[in-house]
């Protein structure tokens, strides 16, 4: 059960079908804390951390393997295999929307349907395509990450630990954020924001739901529409929720949209 340990896999809930939740860049499986419990009565919920994030095994990080999103997709396929998952529902946020999409192409039996929350197949503008960012801006981000991790990794930790009202949350987050290796986070940022999976959209044969937030600066509305247009058999739901993380800012709306789809 190597993948289950490596990716800190947590299985909860009851149900014949499984729902797999994948977190995006910048956080870990805690992203789903307001959403996943709502499905525990109908589904077996599977949560995990990508290698480098949260409670994953940092020593399993191999730069070559994780230099592309397909390396992360392989992990997802391995988790599915170790749990014996078949025809599960995949729910992926942000970059993990594409990771789940790639996994479904690698192992077609794994997922019956895909829920893509704030997906983007390409963050950088090019030709007629609007991704939301210029190449220069993404390079600035990567530079910012390397400049800012002192403040991030070292200074954030005590702040999170010092939450007196909810110590359990503090410990949880401390474990998660403190153990995120800044070097891995930088590499993950590069892989995420330089990725281009536009050509993969048309290959998807599964049912898919695109959840698009309002005013999402990471994955703007045109990008969600692009994904929907280029993925046959997909539905697009425009959410009232703003920002890039409806799973945190508008959990009820997110839950309702997923429930209606499955």
């Amino acid at each position: 059960m190597a993948a289950l340990t490596r990716n800190n896999v947590q299985v909860r809930g009851t149900g014949d079908r499984a729902m797999v939740f994948a977190h995006g860049f910048g956080c870990d499986q805690n992203m789903w804390r307001f959403v996943a419990p709502a499905f525990e009565t109908e589904f077996k919920t599977v949560l995990f951390d990508h290698v480098g994030a949260g409670g994953s095994d940092l020593s399993a990080y191999e730069p070559a393997k994780y230099a592309s999103l397909s390396g992360y997709a392989e992990d997802l396929v391995e988790i599915g295999a170790e749990l014996g998952l078949k025809d599960a529902v995949f729910v992926g946020h942000s970059v993990s929307a594409m990771i789940g999409l790639l996994a479904s192409l690698q192992a077609p039996e794994l997922f019956e349907s895909l829920v893509l929350v704030g997906p983007s197949p390409r963050y950088i503008d090019g030709g007629d395509y609007v991704g939301g960012f210029s190449e220069t801006q993404i390079d600035e981000l990567l530079d910012f990450l390397s400049q800012n991790y002192l403040g991030w990794s070292a200074a954030m930790a005590p702040a999170i630990m010092g939450n007196p009202e909810r110590p359990e949350l503090g410990a949880e987050l401390t474990n998660s954020f403190c153990r995120t290796d800044p070097e891995i986070a930088k590499a993950f940022a590069r892989v995420t924001f330089k990725s281009d999976n536009r050509a993969d959209l048309a290959k998807v044969t599964k049912r898919a739901l695109v959840l698009q937030c309002s005013e999402d600066i990471i994955a703007p509305t045109q990008v969600g529409e692009y994904v929907h247009r280029n993925m046959p058999g997909s539905e697009l739901v425009l959410m009232r929720a703003t920002g890039h993380c409806p799973n945190l800012s508008a959990p009820e709306e997110t839950i309702a949209a997923i429930r209606a789809f499955v």
Binding site: I217, I218, G243
Partner: peptide
């Protein structure tokens, strides 16, 4: 914010704020 700060805020600090209700000393 600058672009990098926007992305960083959206992917890191906004989630953190929602989850724990506060953050301190964010650059």
């Amino acid at each position: 914010l600058n672009i990098a700060g926007r992305i960083f805020y959206e992917t890191h600090f906004a989630p953190l704020l929602r989850m724990q209700g506060f953050f301190n000393e964010v650059a």
